[in-house]
């Protein structure tokens, strides 16, 4: 396992600002949000990471770097899993979409947008996926109450 991360480190050495960490034995790379598309393209083309398995949105509820996106990537030829982590600020949580690199990111990013309000730039079809289109809140944010907000859902009049 450490051997493989070394080769990935070498391939990515031209990109500045990456931090290599670990999530419970899986390698994880912290990426500045401007570099995410570049890193993803390099991982796909040069490191044989061919599938995106999941996108996890996190609301840390802190002043700086409130939101996080964790990309769960998998390589079928190498049989390894690797995580990418991007930190986003609370004012305009925006990050470049990874759909051009792995088209499977489409629905996963829609889910994160639906639940956290993180905007994925140049996403072709950024609609809500679970909640109704006219819903105005983002349910998985920490400032959204568990019981919901009264009046948030417009019900038809009798």
């Amino acid at each position: 396992m450490p051997m493989l991360t070394d080769t990935i480190k070498e391939k990515l050495s031209s990109i500045q600002g990456l931090v290599f960490t670990e999530i419970n034995n899986y390698p994880c790379i912290e990426v500045p949000k401007e570099k995410i598309l570049e890193v993803a393209k390099k991982l796909r083309d040069e490191c044989e990471i061919d599938q995106i398995r999941d996108v996890v949105g996190v609301d840390r509820f802190t002043k700086n770097d409130r939101f996080e996106c964790i990309y769960n990537l998998y390589s079928h030829p190498l049989k390894i899993r690797i995580f990418l982590r991007v930190k986003l600020d609370s004012k305009n949580p925006e990050v470049e979409s990874l759909c051009p690199v792995w088209s499977g990111a489409n629905w996963m990013e829609r889910e994160v947008y639906d639940m956290f309000g993180i905007i994925f730039l140049s996403h072709t079809d950024l609609r809500r996926i679970y909640m109704m289109d006219e819903y105005q809140y983002y349910p998985l944010r920490k400032d959204y109450p568990l019981m919901g907000l009264p009046g948030a859902v417009q019900l038809p009049k009798k």
């Binding site: 599938q51 995106i52 079928h76 792995w102 088209s103 499977g104």
Partner: peptide, 18 residues
């Protein structure tokens, strides 16, 4: 199938041994 993120038996039917 790999690009779109297919998994499990559906991906194995596409020739990926995973």
């Amino acid at each position: 199938a790999i690009q779109i993120g297919l998994g499990g038996p559906n991906l194995r039917a596409a020739g990926v041994e995973t």
